[in-house]
Design a protein around this nucleic acid. Structure first.
Lengths: 348, 348
DNA sequence: GCCCTCTATGTAAACGATTACATATTTGTT
DNA sequence: AACAAATATGTAATCGTTTACATAGAGGGC
């Protein structure tokens, strides 16, 4: 592999001069500039980023720690991160981990010297446990319960979104509204549950534990939960699934059971994945700007990096938007997707 | 940040000894071993991977160059790559690029010194153009037309898969079978088209250009194509979409137009994304083991790395499997998903 | 007591870049 | 003509590791 030394030798110059030419730093004569550039490209010289980052102590790489995410959510959030990172000349180093502490710690160690900062997406409730990471590099906590963390954090307005959707169901005349929950250890899931309960309370509907079914964000879980709900003596008239995948499983179970949606049963989801509008009937959902979530996380991280992690910590949450389609009996007119990212900031 | 020197100083030892202890290389007395380990962990020392890889010339990182992929395909292939990479102690450096040459070249340059090898997923037809990359590091070409490439390559058995599906449609009595194509510049898409035509030829059905509609792998494209097909004087009785997303768009358009599936129109897709079985009716599709595609690509890459890129090049293709559900009028009994990855190898 | 072999440790040279500082040359000012 | 300022280039230290080689002491065989 050809190094800067080889180029210097071939051009009969010192490595310093070659470096200056190639980086446009310091003064060089036009003549040597041409020469060196010519030699370098002829020799197919490519600078060794590893060596460069050792001396500059910048890797221009961002670490991303993710749980074992599935589908649309994963790809969209990466898309958002990557596009913003790339716009600022950064790369993405991705690592999947379980959410438990030793795993995360190992992953963080491995990041040392490879990245300038890390986005940690740990939906597990006690993301606090990572709190005392001895991390001197900037960290942005994504979709986690970042209580009084020393780190920046970014979350979805889960609670308000869920509350709005359930309130919508109430406004359509429903009183027996079931929820298919996510894992009790999942932050987003617990917040959505909180929103559901809040909306029922607002409407003066007494809580009924039997209408709260377990789930784990998969289509299969939604399917199973519906089968159970349909077996109840007193069926609900509406189902709020804590995410779209479960809502889709729910629709499928209802169809097989011959229950008409929305006439006999209204169904709503959360996330508004692209497929939601192609369901039968098109699925009402709470729109989450996933891509922008990734973008914003990276922006926050870059901010932390340029300020050498010595900046006031921020806690932001991106807002959701209700999208009513036919599955809840709403008008099926499609509103244009929200264009701008609205958020609400709390400085800490 | 604490370095190995700091640890050495604190333990009153030389850096060499510290390095030996921490890497378990060379002989050390039990006593100093304990001491150094204790000091290192007390000081929260974390080795700097960048510095390490400079001297060892191993980064333990794999580069992944991807086009702007959407949805399930993206997340699944990354999942497969990451799990295999991690099992071998490697990380993933991900970079999205457009498929054109300058972009790819820039991305490849940026990888220098950061990775030990690269997986390039460039579905664009002339992946040959990248062929003369002056890449001294191992490269695996994924889902590309790797004609007589110097690199390892891995593709899907697109042609056979499509052929089987269309043959199935023929066996159900269809003669006027439409296809919703992918981009003409997309390798997978052109191969699937080839399979479609081959199957028609096999069945002695004369080709009808008007039954071949443009598409681009999005739900919207599938939707539009169906609207056009329904407007024809002589409608087809079956539609083969070159991927599931378009098939889903197609189902949605048929539903809105009041055309019953499969009674009035059979629909089939390609990829068999998890959602396919939850469609209404459940979608027949050609199952692609996406995750295993990623796993296998990384295995090939690792093989190239351990052999310092001096190994016989391989050209592999993973096989697909027909999954017949109700949308083509087949039995709806769900077969278990294929468990093992079958492939067919051609050494070059 | 001598030499050899281990074992434990230290010294210093890499790896491939950047950059502060030194030096040599040119140009400009008076 | 002398000197300062600007320009072009080179020298060498540095980033944080690993590792070949050197050294020193301990134990064993004769």
């Amino acid at each position: 592999m050809v190094t800067i030394k080889d180029v210097a030798r071939a051009a009969n110059m010192s490595v310093a001069t070659v470096s200056r030419v190639l980086n446009g730093s310091g003064p060089v004569s036009e003549e040597t500039g041409h020469l060196i550039r010519e030699v370098a490209s002829r020799m197919r010289y490519v600078p060794h980023s590893g060596a460069r980052s050792l001396i500059t102590s910048k890797t221009e790489t961002l670490g991303v720690l993710l749980p074992d995410l599935y589908g649309e959510f994963f790809s969209e959030i990466i898309r958002g991160m990557d596009s913003t990172a790339q716009r600022h000349g950064f790369h993405l180093l991705i690592s999947r981990t379980y959410a438990d502490k030793p795993e995360i710690e190992t992953a963080m160690r491995a990041m040392r010297g490879r990245v300038d900062g890390v986005v940690v997406l740990s939906p597990d409730l006690d993301a606090d446990s990572l709190l005392n990471l001895p991390s001197t590099i900037p960290v942005v906590l994504l979709c986690s319960a970042a209580k009084d963390s020393q780190m920046d954090s970014l979350t979805i307005q889960n609670c308000r979104g869920a509350r709005e959707m359930v309130t919508h169901l109430v406004s359509m005349g429903h009183r027996r509204i079931a929820i298919i929950k996510g894992s009790p250890r999942n932050y987003d899931a617990t917040e959505r549950l909180r929103g559901y309960r809040g909306a029922l309370r607002d409407a003066g509907i007494t809580q009924d534990e039997s209408l709260e079914r377990e789930g784990n964000f998969t289509e299969a879980a939604g399917y199973t939960a519906v089968i159970e709900l349909l077996a109840m003596r007193k069926r609900p008239t509406a189902i709020f699934a804590a995410n779209d995948a479960m809502a889709i499983g729910a629709l499928s179970a209802l169809r097989e059971s011959g229950v008409r949606v929305p006439e006999e049963m209204a169904v709503a989801g959360f996330d508004d994945i692209p497929l939601a509008r192609y369901m039968d009937p098109p699925l009402s959902s709470v729109h989450v700007p996933i891509c922008e979530l990734g973008e914003r996380a990276v922006e926050m991280l870059l901010h932390g990096i340029t300020h050498k992690n010595d900046h006031p910590r921020r806690r932001e949450r991106v807002s959701t938007e209700l999208v009513i389609r036919r599955s809840t009996g709403g008008e099926s007119a499609e509103r244009p997707p929200p264009k701008t990212l609205k958020r609400e900031t709390v400085s800490t």
